[in-house]
């Protein structure tokens, strides 16, 4: 163990971990809000809405997150006068914000696909039964389809959170001192390979914790389905 390096960079790596978690929590939350309208548009009767949301989802799911981050971060830098004119430059000036924006758009596309799949996976008999009980289509969607779809979506959404934690490491390449950013800094100063291993342990702890908490959550939320 390189105790000197641990004493110097250990606390900073924990700070970096906090930045990573902030990035992920904000992006996942905003992405969840955005995913609903995108998923609904994807399933709407309007061809235009379907087309737009298809294009959006295809773009963000079909290109690398790193390339998207570069596009937003350095692309925005190129359009500074225009962004200033509409009063948004102060947001795009900040690398953390650019990352949150990119990650949100990215995860919203994946989450929308998860929601769409889950909604379609709810058996048709469920809405037929609800209809015969006299519920209107709005009630059927909100009270019958959505709760069941969310349960189906729970596992893939958990995977998406984990993918976001891992993916967020690209923020380090555009000056954000997240866990990966601090690790790179520490490595560039100490040239000690150990720091990468410490970072690996931290990432594994976070990912495993989330995985286990998610399993518990799923176990709890599906308790009514477990008799037969």
């Amino acid at each position: 163990m390189n105790w000197d390096a641990l004493a110097t960079y250990g606390p900073r790596m924990l700070q970096g971990l906090v930045v990573t978690l902030q990035l992920v929590v904000i992006s996942i939350t905003l992405g969840a809000l955005l995913a609903w309208p995108v998923a609904l548009a994807r399933m709407s009767r309007s061809r235009i809405l379907r087309g737009i949301s298809f294009g959006y989802m295809y773009f963000f799911r079909g290109t690398p997150l790193l390339a998207q981050t570069f596009l937003v971060y350095y692309g925005a830098g190129q359009f500074r006068p225009q962004l200033e004119a509409v009063g948004l430059w102060w947001l795009f000036r900040d690398a953390f914000f650019c990352c949150v924006l990119t990650f949100t758009l990215n995860t919203a596309a994946y989450q929308a696909e998860i929601l769409r799949g889950a909604i379609r996976a709810v058996p048709i008999g469920q809405s037929e039964a609800a209809m015969s009980l006299g519920l209107n289509s709005r009630q059927i969607f909100r009270k019958i389809i959505v709760p069941q779809a969310l349960l189906i979506a729970l596992r893939p959404l958990g995977n998406e959170v984990i993918l976001m934690i891992k993916g967020s490491s690209v923020a380090a390449i555009v000056t954000v001192f997240d866990l990966m950013g601090v690790t790179r800094l520490a490595y560039s100063r100490t040239f000690d390979f150990q720091v990468y291993l410490w970072a690996a342990v931290l990432y594994l702890i976070v990912v495993e914790t989330i995985r286990r908490v998610w399993d518990k959550l799923e176990h709890y939320l599906t308790r009514h389905l477990r008799h037969a």
Binding site: K166, A172, L204
Partner: peptide, 11 residues
């Protein structure tokens, strides 16, 4: 599996 699915690909 646990390790390489848990680590960021970049790392």
């Amino acid at each position: 599996t646990t390790i390489f699915r848990g680590l960021p690909e970049l790392l």
